[in-house]
């Protein structure tokens, strides 16, 4: 295996969908193997990532302030926020599960928001970075994103099962905001092009 330089500088475009290497010519605009549109880098990567990231920052506030679910027992409602649910689990002695939910619904989304912001800033301001380490960070961010859906799925199970006359669990407005945060950050990670980290080297 012989390694060369950046493929783009050598006049090649890597197809985003199938990974086919195409020599740049004037008339070629779609991949000969999978017919998808060819781009040197993901199109408008920074702008799109930035827009998605900002929207998730704003939605992250209602997601944490409003109740994510309400437990009604014989007329009295008890609203839980994301943090409240975790505190209840830990108080109830279910520490491992409490920690799991803490990681999935607080640590993962917040570190994702911070991580993607750092990636954007480093590309925009051309920071001198260790690109290998930052690409690894990008990979971790892209991998962990989906696990935040845990809270949303859990609500759908609880709402479905705890539905008796007298005792009920109802989803709260934060559920919509939180689901939106998870999905928007997943799209943000998908739109960020890690090759931009290497282009500045």
């Amino acid at each position: 295996m012989r390694a060369k330089q950046c493929a783009l500088k050598q006049g090649f475009i890597n197809c985003h969908d199938c990974g086919y290497l195409v020599k740049i010519t004037q008339q070629l605009s779609s991949c000969p193997r999978c017919h998808s549109h060819l781009h040197e880098r993901k199109p408008h990567s920074l702008q799109r990532t930035c827009a998605l990231l900002l929207s998730s920052f704003f939605l992250y506030i209602p997601a944490n302030i409003f109740p994510i679910m309400t437990v009604t027992q014989f007329g009295t409602g008890d609203a839980h926020t994301i943090a409240g649910g975790i505190i209840e689990l830990i108080d109830g002695g279910m520490i491992p599960i409490g920690l799991l939910v803490l990681v999935a619904s607080i640590l993962v989304p917040s570190s994702k928001l911070i991580g993607i912001s750092l990636l954007l800033l480093s590309v925009h301001f051309r920071w001198k970075i260790n690109a290998r380490r930052w690409t690894f960070m990008y990979r971790v961010i892209a991998f962990i994103g989906r696990w935040s859906m845990l809270d949303i799925f859990m609500i759908s199970i609880l709402v479905d099962l705890v539905d008796f006359t007298g005792v009920q669990i109802i989803a709260g407005p934060a559920a919509i905001a939180f689901a939106a945060v998870v999905i928007l950050t997943m799209f943000a990670a998908e739109n960020f092009d890690p090759r931009l980290l290497w282009d500045n080297q």
């Binding site: 783009l8 050598q10 090649f12």
Partner: peptide
């Protein structure tokens, strides 16, 4: 010959790959 070459999708390094 471009078919034996591949580019890394995450860092765009041009690599001469042996199957």
């Amino acid at each position: 010959n471009s078919t034996s070459y591949q580019a890394c999708p995450e860092c765009d390094l041009l690599i001469d790959l042996v199957q």
